[in-house]
Amino acid sequence: MGAAQVHPSAVVDPGARLGEDVCIGAFTLIGPDVEIGAGTTVGPHCSIHGPTRIGRENHIHGHAAIGGEPQDKKFAGERAELVIGDRNTIREFVTINRGTGEGGGITRVGDDNWLLAYTHVAHDCVVGDRCVFSNNATLAGHVTVGDHVILSGFVGIHQFCRIGAHAFIGMGAFVNGDVPPFVMVAQDGYGRPRGINAEGLKRRGFDSARTSAIKRAYRALYVSGDSLADARVRLEEMAQGSEDVRAFLDFIDAGDRPLLR
C-alpha cells in the first residue's frame, strides 16, 4: 500500500481525506469534507463535493459528478451527505446527489454496484448492493432500491417509489408505483408487471422450489383478479412455508405509495 497518486492538474481541497493507493485523474476536483477509501480510482474531469464518504476499491470513470447539491427547491444549504460503499463501478457522466434535511439527510449507495453511463441517483435515495443501472437509468428523489436490482436503459423511477430485491425493470419503463421483490416490469406507457425475474433468480442460485413459490405469489397478486385485500390473505397463507413469499408480503405491507399493479 502506498500514498495517494494525484495528477498535477487535479485540485484536491486540503480538507479532503484520501486513503492509501487512491488515484485521482487529470483535471478532477475533490472538494472539502470528502473522504475516499483505499484503492479507489477517480478518472479525469470528475467532481466530488462533500460531505461525501466513498469506500474502498471503487472505480469512478471520467466526467462523473458525485456529491453535488440536491436538485430540490426546498434545499436551503443544510448539511446533507452522500455515502457510497465499496467496489462500485461508476461510469462516465453519472450524477449522484447528496441528501436533504427533510429527506433524512443522506443519499446511500451500497457495495458492488454498476452504475453505467449517464445514470442519475437523486437526493435521499437508498441503493442496495450488487445492482446494475444501465445507461440513462434515473432515480428521482427518495427512491429505495433493494439488492440485485437491474434497471435497463432509459428507465425512470418516480420519487418515493420502492423497488424490491431481485426486481428487473425493462428498457424504457417509467415506474410510478412500488415494485415488489422478484417482479419483472416491462415498458407499456408506464411500466407494468410482466411476471417474475426468473432468469435473474436462476443466476443467483434460487432452486425450483423457491422460484415456484415466488411464481405462485405473483399469480395471487397480479393474475388472480383478486382485490389487494383478498390477495394479501392468500399471500399470508403462502408465506407460512416460504421466506421469499414472506419478503414479498412484508414489502407490500411496508409501502406508503400505491403498489404497481
Rank of each mutant, 00 (worst) to 15 (best):
R108C: 02
K202N: 10
D178L: 02
N136F: 14
I214H: 09
H61M: 13
N135W: 07
F75G: 01
C161M: 15
T40F: 11
G50T: 04
G103W: 10
I48D: 13
G146P: 03
L116Y: 06
F93I: 00
K202E: 14
D112N: 14
E102F: 05
T211R: 15
I252P: 03
I84H: 05
G2R: 08
K74R: 15
P70W: 06
I106C: 15
D72T: 09
E69D: 13
V22K: 11
S224M: 04
G85M: 01
G67N: 10
G128R: 04
R232K: 14
L221Q: 02
G195Q: 13
H7E: 09
A247V: 00
A140K: 05
V6L: 10
L260N: 07
E20K: 15
I48C: 11
G85N: 03
L18R: 08
S152L: 02
A140C: 12
Q71R: 08
I157V: 15
F168T: 03
D72S: 12
D86S: 06
G205F: 14
K73I: 07
L29F: 14
G62V: 00
K202A: 15
R204C: 08
L151R: 03
V149R: 01
R257D: 05
G39Q: 08
G31F: 14
L82F: 11
D253T: 08
S47P: 00
G110P: 10
G164A: 10
D13N: 15
V11Y: 06
G43P: 06
G101Q: 14
G205V: 09
G177T: 13
L29A: 10
E35F: 11
I66A: 03
R53Y: 00
G77K: 12
